[in-house]
């Protein structure tokens, strides 16, 4: 299967106030060479992303993945203590499909120190493409002072965070919860990453009759990077089944999802473990011990998850 080809223009540097002209020059740069050929802009969202400058490559990879499904105007706001604000770097990507050519990414990258962030809303707001949904991807930890986040979020319809990046996990998860209670749409990529685990647990609970109120106890083993995921899963089980779940932090350090979940539910035992690309699920009840079944592990990169979050949001 040969898909469409993506072509990226050379980067253009512009002062902030010259960004609109720079964008127009990009459109011209996207025109095919042939006489009479045309190019269309097919943007479906505005995508505003905030990340540490050290994470720039990862963020670009995410955006590359995202535009394969969701063409966008992307603002990459890179926090760099050494940067002097005032200029931006622009580039565009076109997709060619036979004789057809569409602009699928208009990228505006800005490096700036955190102290200049309050100015950024004034830069971004007039450049948001009209009539499109605005998604804010906050690809860093939640700051204690959320005023800049608030200002950007107020321009956007949907906030995407990834609690794997959180430092003070409990506090930041709580801050996210509070935002939801205030009516904001927030998607946590870690929650999406946990989808196979949630599904596996739901499948497991399908294998025996559940009595509401039955005592549920258990442990979730995780490593250093998997704390937020473990906490989210524990909170979810607690909310749904009043489970008392302990977190066991002795797992390998790198995995983003739990290593093992063990639950005891009124005489039934559920155990989920990771094995390669799958989650292995065993359920035993007092009457029988079913063969284990497998659920595929999370299938995506951060870019896939951001794409899924945009679809949801």
């Amino acid at each position: 299967m040969s898909g469409p080809a993506l072509l990226r223009t050379a980067p253009v540097h512009a002062e902030w106030k010259r960004i609109p002209e720079a964008l127009r020059s990009l459109w011209r740069a996207c025109l095919p060479d042939q006489q009479g050929a045309d190019v269309a802009r097919s943007l479906a969202i505005n995508f505003v992303a905030v990340a540490a400058a050290a994470e720039e490559d990862a963020l670009r990879e995410t955006v590359d993945k995202l535009v394969r499904r969701t063409p966008c105007r992307a603002f990459l706001l890179l926090l760099d203590p050494a940067a002097r604000p005032g200029t931006a770097t622009l580039a565009a990507t076109t997709r060619t499909h036979g004789a057809l050519r569409d602009i699928v990414l208009e990228e505006i990258a800005v490096r700036l120190p955190a102290s200049a962030m309050p100015q950024i809303t004034g830069l971004v707001r007039p450049l948001l493409e009209n009539d499109l949904p605005n998604h804010l991807y906050w690809a860093t930890r939640l700051p204690a002072d959320e005023s800049t986040l608030d200002a950007l979020a107020s321009m956007c319809d949907h906030l995407i965070v990834d609690s794997k990046r959180f430092g003070a996990v409990a506090r930041e998860l709580d801050a996210v919860q509070q935002r939801r209670r205030r009516g904001h749409r927030v998607t946590d990529l870690t929650w999406l990453r946990l989808r196979p685990w949630r599904r596996a647990l739901a499948e497991a609970f399908d294998r025996f009759p559940w009595q509401p109120g039955a005592p549920v106890t258990g442990t979730i083993r995780h490593g250093g990077n998997g704390l937020a995921a473990a906490q989210l899963l524990a909170n979810w089980l607690q909310a749904r089944t009043q489970a008392k779940v302990a977190l066991d932090p002795t797992g390998g350090p790198t995995a983003l999802c739990p290593e093992r979940v063990a639950l005891a539910v009124a005489g039934c035992d559920i155990e989920l473990t990771t094995g390669g690309p799958q989650v292995r699920v065993s359920v035993s009840t007092p009457e029988r011990c079913d063969l284990p079944f497998h659920v595929p592990q999370s299938r995506g990169t951060d870019g896939d998850l951001v794409g899924a979050a945009v679809d949801l949001g």
């Binding site: 599904r199 647990l201 739901a202 609970f205 399908d206 009759p209 559940w210 749904r240």
Partner: peptide
């Protein structure tokens, strides 16, 4: 219909996952 008694059942309903 998924059994209503499963406290996590909405994970299965929304996802269009088939039974074994």
């Amino acid at each position: 219909p998924a059994p209503t008694s499963n406290p996590l059942g909405d994970e299965l309903r929304g996802a269009r996952t088939a039974k074994p």
